[in-house]
Design a protein around this nucleic acid. Structure first.
Lengths: 149, 149
DNA sequence: TCTCATATTTGTAATCGTTATAATATTAAA
DNA sequence: TTTAATATTATAACGATTACAAATATGAGA
């Protein structure tokens, strides 16, 4: 996984459309308007949205956009390995433009998905296995939802 | 999570139907034949089967069994917290009668799901969160499928 | 044992997220 | 400009799961 965000001058600033366009080009993805906007949403919001959430948000800007385009584009981004899929919840694929190794926490009350920092992970008995993907998914109550529980 | 297996005299021996019957009773689950056989399959095979795999296997013994019964029973077992759901693969819920903390590895070639020992896990920034569930899911190639790759 | 209430099982239809398909529109190349 | 390749769109199809309602089995009390 490439932590491409770190190559940027100001990693925490929102990506401009120009920057996204260049980036997609570099990755061999033709930067159509729909693709730009979908990547923009993922990389600048970082809320781990579902395909349908992306569709509903982008519909305001691009009334003609179709669900299929969103799904197609997300699959393209996955194939090109510039985003990852988050399967913390059954029957609800989410998408994440952060590729560096981190975990996810889903609040069972408010439904929000948070990034979790993994300081150390030691696994046993993996000799002979070739690990290509790692996912750490937590569920529970987030700080705001714990309040006065 | 109760590691009930460890309470047994010989933890590695297969569970008898009598023993399963007693166990379900203790958990407030009436031990019908279908429930006995579904739990028997989960606890003695430990292959992390899907609902459909359980259905297809049990159909040989119980030709009248329906998919709905398998789904209902698995949901009951989940509610009573005597099994856990494994969502390592999208659109493919698997079920596991081992409740002690461990990870899962799915081989992308043969499809088998293995248990992985977690020696240490240290997370950061979880202050204020109440963690109720943890899942560690890996994908890659298992030793047999790596051979002479 | 019989009866009744309750729990369980079953088959079918419905649901929901996602994918397949095919027509249309857009872009790039000749 | 013409043509070919690519991208987008709407619709239909798919597959895993759930909802529903009827049928069956079970257990407690008379």
């Amino acid at each position: 996984m490439r932590a491409y965000a770190k190559l940027r001058e100001k990693p925490d600033m929102p990506w401009s459309l120009d920057e996204i366009s260049q980036f997609l080009d570099q990755q061999g993805i033709r930067p159509s308007f729909q693709r730009l906007k979908i990547f923009e949403y993922l990389v600048n919001e970082r809320t781990h949205p579902t395909a349908d959430e992306i569709y509903e948000v982008l519909r305001k800007d691009i009334p003609s956009i179709s669900r299929t385009t969103v799904y197609n584009t997300l699959r393209l981004f996955l194939d090109k390995k510039i985003i990852q899929m988050v399967n913390i919840e059954k029957n609800e694929a989410r998408y994440d433009a952060t590729l560096s190794w981190h975990g996810h926490f889903k609040c069972l009350k408010c439904g929000q998905v948070y990034d979790i920092e993994i300081e150390e992970l030691k696994l046993g008995g993996l000799a002979g296995y070739q690990v290509l993907e790692k996912h750490l998914d937590l569920k529970g109550l987030c700080p705001s939802c714990c309040q006065g529980k």
